[in-house]
């Protein structure tokens, strides 16, 4: 028996360490399993209970009065897609450019900005809804009372919710782009913005898209910021200056109604919302296949 072996085996101390290590590993595995089981059971519950309620009319029909059979989620589906688009138009340019700025400069100002981005990230979404209510809905109400809610206001709330997430992920991903790449570009005589635009950003594309998808997934399911901005609409609407329906609003309303068929419609809405997010991520992965930097 060598000295090394004897020091690793059979002494009480090392046995204790090993069992402690095994115990902690067991705890970690258990925690991971609990998380997966919770997630899976939610998914399974929603799919089992809701899949039967999805039919063609779910996509082609608008709401019917409560207490009557039938009805669909067309208004909500179209509304959610429109709201996500407006949110992206507002949130993505600001988020990505802001992320670039925070990485490329290292001044007191940019560090302060980063701190505020983090604070912004932890602000409850309903506060963002109130913000949009204050800067968009109330001023319009002063001009034309009773016609103040709009898809645009909802999009502003969602766009502002996206900004901090996109900003932080963009910055973190750009940080992973090797300095040598940047140096090479600069050494060839490219200006700084050209380097960022044509070398750094493309190299980080996959990661940025992942960040954008996370932000989109976050806003797709938001109910609170839409209550006082997009408001919801019993009519079909695609106009940005009118109130618009959204799937999370439908789910919330229908799940709390007295009627069984609406409860099923709420579950169908949850599945469709999940599907929208899933399709978005798959499409993005497909478009970016073969690209590096996840």
């Amino acid at each position: 028996m060598t000295i090394a072996e004897s020091s690793f085996r059979s002494t009480g101390r090392s046995r204790f360490r090993r069992s402690l290590s095994a115990f902690m590993a067991g705890l970690s595995i258990a925690a991971a399993i609990i998380a997966c089981v919770a997630l899976l059971s939610v998914l399974v519950y929603i799919v089992i209970n809701g899949i039967g309620s999805i039919s063609l009319s779910t996509f082609t029909e608008g709401p019917v009065p409560q207490g009557q059979p039938g009805g669909g989620l067309r208004n909500g589906i179209v509304g959610t897609l429109i709201l996500m688009s407006i949110g992206s138009v507002i949130g993505l340019p600001i988020g990505i450019l802001g992320g670039v700025y925070q990485l490329e400069t290292n001044t007191t100002f940019s560090r302060t900005l980063r701190f505020f981005t983090d604070v912004l990230n932890s602000i409850p979404s309903i506060v963002m809804g109130l913000f949009a209510y204050l800067i968009v809905v109330l001023p319009v109400a002063a001009f034309s009372p009773g016609h103040a809610f709009s898809a645009f206001a909802g999009g502003v709330a969602l766009g502002f919710l996206m900004i901090p997430t996109v900003m932080r992920t963009t910055e973190e991903i750009l940080r992973l782009v090797p300095t040598t790449l940047r140096d090479a570009s600069l050494a060839l005589g490219a200006s700084r913005w050209r380097t960022t635009w044509s070398v750094v950003l493309p190299a980080a594309r996959g990661g940025i898209v992942t960040g954008v998808l996370l932000a989109l997934a976050r806003i797709a399911g938001e109910t609170a910021p839409l209550l006082f901005t997009a408001f919801g609409n019993l009519d079909f609407n695609v106009r940005l200056d009118h109130p618009i329906d959204a799937l999370p609003l439908n789910i919330f309303n229908y799940a709390t109604s007295p009627y069984e068929n609406l409860h099923h419609l709420a579950l169908a809405g949850a599945i469709i919302l999940l599907a929208i997010i899933l399709i978005l991520s798959l499409a993005a992965r497909y478009a970016l296949r073969g690209q590096t930097m996840e």
Binding site: P63, P65, Q66, G67, Q68, L234, Y259
Partner: peptide, 8 residues
């Protein structure tokens, strides 16, 4: 709300 959706 149920009455209102019917009225609307």
């Amino acid at each position: 709300n149920p009455a209102m959706t019917k009225w609307v």
